[in-house]
Write a protein that binds this DNA or RNA. Structure first.
Lengths: 211, 211
DNA sequence: GCACGAAGTTTCCGGTTTGGAAAACTTGCA
DNA sequence: TGCAAGTTTTCCAAACCGGAAACTTCGTGC
């Protein structure tokens, strides 16, 4: 697939990738506040103006790696077998989208940064919005519903988006000790069962039954 | 309650309110692109620097009205009767939060603006994030779960947030002809039933049953 | 291979935005 | 009234932004 691209396209893609890799690396290493577009450009040996040709802010560059996967996720969903349950398809497609492409520790640190920086959070959330929009179209195709008129495809797309977002948020706090896959599995399961109120003894150690 | 605030606090609140009212009004009347912080400040008869003491961008000011309700919504949820089903509480609390405080036509126009402007969308989405965070705490209290360890309260908070967001999005396109309350009711209903795949004939006029 | 058009990068630069610092002003209280 | 605390304003320097033109690199037809 990439072999069909000319040298020019490949270089452009490589520059973009190098910029967002550098942005992420520098943000993790040196913090977001002190990071400047100039610093990122310098790291990649391009001019600051070139950075601004690709990204309109450092925040956009930092989360671009996560964000760009919205395309692939929707495409992958479209390629799932038509007779598979939609929940199984979502499960199969969403989790790999974040588990690949970045070391888990980097992902956790990035989520920590996102939580603390308004501009990063805003950029991150528009990424989820983008993801939802694309998924809604595929879900509508798969289920014979209409994105323009029916609640269902938008709602399921958003629901699976929050399953991922919520799981990432809980996992990144590190207070559960559970794997991302485990948490995400539970989230999808809860959603597909209508979010039943958990039994009081659900959490094992939050307190013994009162005398 | 507000009587307990001193004149100083009341004036500050009034200035903030005047700024975000003006920002919204000007954005709706004259568009977002040409709107400047200077213009907003001028409308309220304060200096541009004062505007920037309250809001860090025009976008923040424009959606501040919607955003500020996150506090009240969480408070209102906390005040619902303890024996009410959580879904009923959510239904009772979320819808009024958007239906009051702004003419419906203004709300629809604002949502139209938000859809078209990346920065506005980003700001709007952080508002929902804020709402979810507050609601998760109350939900955890109500259901005896733990925000730090359990998936449930975060997921239900996010789920009711997207019920609202999705409903607003679908309603604002105007392509359904349905009321916001109607759409929102269906969204909550779908979520509480586990998002069952709708029957093929769900939409009345998307096509006759194939022969 | 070479030359030319297309596309990407860089330099230059002026307009805009941003937020710190301190002065000026307002409020709350004795 | 006089003072302390808080808010608004003026001033301003640094950072950011993106248009325009020069320059470099790539793709293609000869």
């Amino acid at each position: 697939m990439t072999d069909e691209l000319g040298l020019r396209e490949r270089k452009k893609l490589a520059t973009r990738q190098a910029l967002c890799d550098a942005a992420l690396k520098l943000a993790l290493d040196e913090g977001v506040a002190t990071l400047t577009p100039e610093r990122i450009a310098e790291e990649v040996h391009v001019s600051p103006r070139t950075f601004r040709n690709y990204f309109s802010s450092k925040e956009e560059a930092i989360v671009a790696g996560l964000r760009d996967r919205a395309h692939e996720v929707a495409d992958n969903l479209r390629r799932r077998p038509a007779d598979e349950s939609i929940w199984d398809s979502l499960r199969a497609v969403l989790l790999p989208s974040v588990e690949t492409g970045m070391p888990g520790s980097d992902l956790m640190n990035l989520l920590g940064l996102i939580r603390c920086h308004h501009a990063l959070l805003a950029e991150h959330l528009t990424g989820f919005e983008d993801l939802s929009r694309r998924m809604a179209e595929v879900i509508a195709e798969r289920t014979g519903t209409d994105v323009q008129r029916d609640v269902y495809p938008r709602l399921l797309a958003d629901a699976s988006g929050i399953a991922l977002k919520t799981s990432l948020g809980l996992w990144a706090t590190g207070s559960t000790g559970r794997s991302l896959a485990d948490i995400f599995g539970e989230a999808l399961d809860l959603l597909s069962r209508g979010l039943p109120v958990p039994a009081p003894a659900h959490s094992a150690d939050t307190g013994p039954p009162a005398g």
